[in-house]
Amino acid sequence: MEALIGSTLAVAIAEMGDKTQLLALLLVGRYGRPALICLGILVATIINHGFSAWLGDWLGGLIPPTWLPWIIGTSFLAVALWMLIPDKEDGGDGRFAALGPFGATCMLFFLAEIGDKTQIATVVLAAKYSATWMVIIGTTLGMLLANVPVVIFGRWILQRINLKWVHIGAFVLFLGFALASFWQGF
């Protein structure tokens, strides 16, 4: 249960102000089909974070157990610092427009998550916990918690949230994860 809750919270908070939220806003503005866009986010996230979690689980099995808290703590610290750098919009979805709202969302979200902080966090979380499926479910739920409201209420929400404080909150969360891992290493 710790893996599920920790993964959900980590990704939901890390995703606030992320480029995929900007992408969700662009997609809903272009297609106006929130249900298909939300379904596309779900499918892309399950595939992307599934691969990431299995990679993290595999890496966790290769690393000596005494090193794991230090590597995970350092990784969480890096993600925490990364949270202080806000994402910028990556561009349009012109190449994928012919795929329609579901296909364009799947492709664009999958590509946007490659190398993203939430993908890296998924690898680290899967290495930390032995419950790979709970990490996949948790990170997927976190992605949906952060992006579905943007699809539904996008413009209204973004006018009322100060993203600077969201990034600081995410920094504090990942810093807490890092400190907990370092503490475990002692």
Results as ranks from 00 to 15, higher is better:
145 L>V: 06
100 G>N: 11
145 L>P: 04
94 G>C: 09
121 A>N: 04
129 Y>K: 02
82 W>Y: 04
67 W>E: 06
72 I>Y: 14
134 M>T: 11
112 A>Y: 00
116 D>R: 07
85 I>P: 03
105 T>D: 03
103 G>N: 05
91 G>L: 10
103 G>C: 07
107 M>F: 14
148 V>D: 08
86 P>S: 11
148 V>Y: 10
100 G>I: 00
134 M>C: 04
120 I>W: 03
123 V>Q: 01
147 N>M: 05
118 T>H: 06
149 P>F: 13
96 F>H: 11
146 A>Y: 02
70 W>M: 06
82 W>C: 10
123 V>E: 05
77 L>K: 02
94 G>F: 12
100 G>Q: 12
90 D>A: 13
150 V>E: 02
102 F>A: 05
136 I>M: 06
105 T>S: 13
70 W>D: 03
147 N>D: 14
88 K>D: 13
79 V>I: 15
99 L>M: 11
97 A>M: 12
150 V>S: 04
65 P>F: 13
105 T>I: 04
90 D>S: 08
146 A>P: 04
97 A>T: 12
79 V>C: 09
144 L>G: 00
132 T>A: 12
110 F>P: 04
136 I>C: 06
140 T>H: 00
153 F>R: 13
95 R>I: 06
135 V>D: 09
125 L>A: 11
136 I>K: 03
64 P>D: 11
141 L>N: 05
149 P>S: 07
75 S>P: 03
153 F>L: 12
124 V>T: 15
124 V>G: 03
133 W>P: 05
146 A>D: 07
86 P>I: 10
144 L>K: 02
81 L>H: 03
125 L>V: 02
101 P>E: 08
67 W>C: 07
111 L>F: 12
116 D>W: 14
85 I>M: 14
150 V>G: 00
117 K>E: 04
70 W>A: 09
127 A>L: 02
121 A>W: 06
136 I>T: 02
111 L>Y: 04
145 L>I: 11
134 M>G: 00
90 D>Q: 10
145 L>A: 08
117 K>D: 02
79 V>P: 01
104 A>N: 12
67 W>V: 06
130 S>R: 14
92 G>T: 07
75 S>Q: 06
128 K>Y: 13
92 G>W: 03
70 W>E: 01
93 D>C: 14
99 L>I: 09
106 C>N: 09
107 M>V: 15
131 A>P: 00
121 A>I: 09
69 P>N: 07
77 L>V: 00
146 A>S: 15
117 K>G: 07
71 I>Y: 05
85 I>K: 15
83 M>P: 02
116 D>E: 10
106 C>S: 09
68 L>M: 14
121 A>Y: 09
89 E>H: 13
83 M>I: 03
84 L>P: 04
77 L>G: 11
91 G>T: 05
129 Y>P: 01
127 A>D: 02
84 L>N: 08
147 N>S: 08
155 R>F: 12
69 P>H: 05
130 S>H: 14
95 R>L: 12
152 I>S: 08
95 R>S: 15
78 A>D: 01
67 W>D: 09
126 A>P: 00
86 P>D: 08
150 V>P: 00
130 S>A: 14
111 L>K: 08
93 D>S: 15
91 G>N: 04
110 F>H: 09
112 A>G: 12
69 P>A: 11
132 T>G: 06
147 N>G: 04
151 V>R: 02
